[in-house]
């Protein structure tokens, strides 16, 4: 009988007890394996924060900027030199005229004294002494005049120097302001610039902007094409989208006229990729 029923024990109660036991054991094992295992966070893939690249278009390339600054400095130096030369020449002329005048006076005085002496050669020594005193007084006066002139010259020189310094500092502060506003313009335009897929490193397009004091762009044109029409177009579109730079309203009018009436920008894609 048991020969015919190898599963006889299992078959009691329709096989339910072994089935329940097997199922419970299976799930208990599962729980032990799955739930008992602690998953440490190091098992997770760490996701790094994406690197955010801010796009900036640099106006003129630094070399060009430096060259311009150098040029300006040289011009200023030349101006200064020229002015100095003129001043020196003028001073020398004055000096010469004065010396001549002095010499003439002295000569006249001498001649007068000579004539007097010749006329009153044998006259009393007192007159001579008084003449001597007179001469001394005259010499004293010339010395005094001379000193006065020297003082005036010194004053003039100092005033000139002060004016020069003031001018230099004014130029420097203006440069600072210009750089600040140029940076604003550059930032606004580069935010609006969508670089076309055809852009390649090494391309550059120079754009000339005409601005009015309210900050609006009156016109823009490509001064120097990049050679890629899409690139040029994207640059002009960026300018168009930027439309106006209200910050420019704060600018001093003369500074605006000197620097922003016509404004040149160079676009190059590698500035963005950096």
């Amino acid at each position: 009988m048991s020969k015919f029923h190898p599963l006889a024990i299992l078959l009691k109660f329709e096989g339910y007890p072994p089935a329940v036991a097997a199922s419970v054991i299976l799930h208990a094992l599962l729980l032990v394996f799955v739930l008992g295992r602690a998953v440490t966070p190091s098992d997770y893939v760490t996701i790094e924060d994406p690197v955010i690249i801010t796009a900036t278009a640099v106006d003129v390339n630094p070399q060009r900027l430096r060259r311009l600054e150098r040029l300006e400095e040289e011009q200023a130096a030349a101006n200064r030199r020229r002015q100095e030369d003129q001043a020196r020449a003028r001073r020398e002329q004055e000096e010469r005229a004065r010396q001549e005048r002095l010499a003439q006076e002295q000569r006249q005085a001498r001649e007068r004294a000579e004539a007097e002496r010749r006329r009153q050669e044998d006259l009393d020594r007192q007159r001579q002494a008084s003449a001597e005193a007179e001469r001394q007084r005259q010499a004293e006066e010339t010395r005094r005049r001379e000193a006065e002139q020297a003082r005036q010259r010194e004053q003039q020189r100092l005033a000139e120097q002060a004016a020069r310094e003031a001018q230099a500092s004014q130029v420097a502060s203006e440069n600072l302001v210009v750089a600040e506003y140029a940076a604003i313009i550059r930032r606004v335009i580069s935010q609006n610039w969508q670089i076309p897929p055809s852009a390649r490193n090494g391309m550059s397009a120079t754009v000339s902007l005409r601005l009015v004091p309210t900050g609006e762009v009156v016109s823009s044109s490509i001064l120097q094409s990049s050679g890629d029409a899409a690139f040029d177009r994207s640059v002009l579109q960026a300018v168009e989208r930027a439309d106006r730079f209200p910050e420019l309203q704060d600018l001093d009018n003369s500074v605006f006229e000197r620097n922003f009436r016509n404004f040149t920008l160079v676009f190059r894609p590698e500035d963005l990729l950096r």
Partner: peptide, 13 residues
């Protein structure tokens, strides 16, 4: 799983 095991026993028998 109870049913799977039970059916297996019944059917193989």
């Amino acid at each position: 799983w109870v049913i799977i095991v039970q059916k297996w026993i019944i059917l193989s028998d």
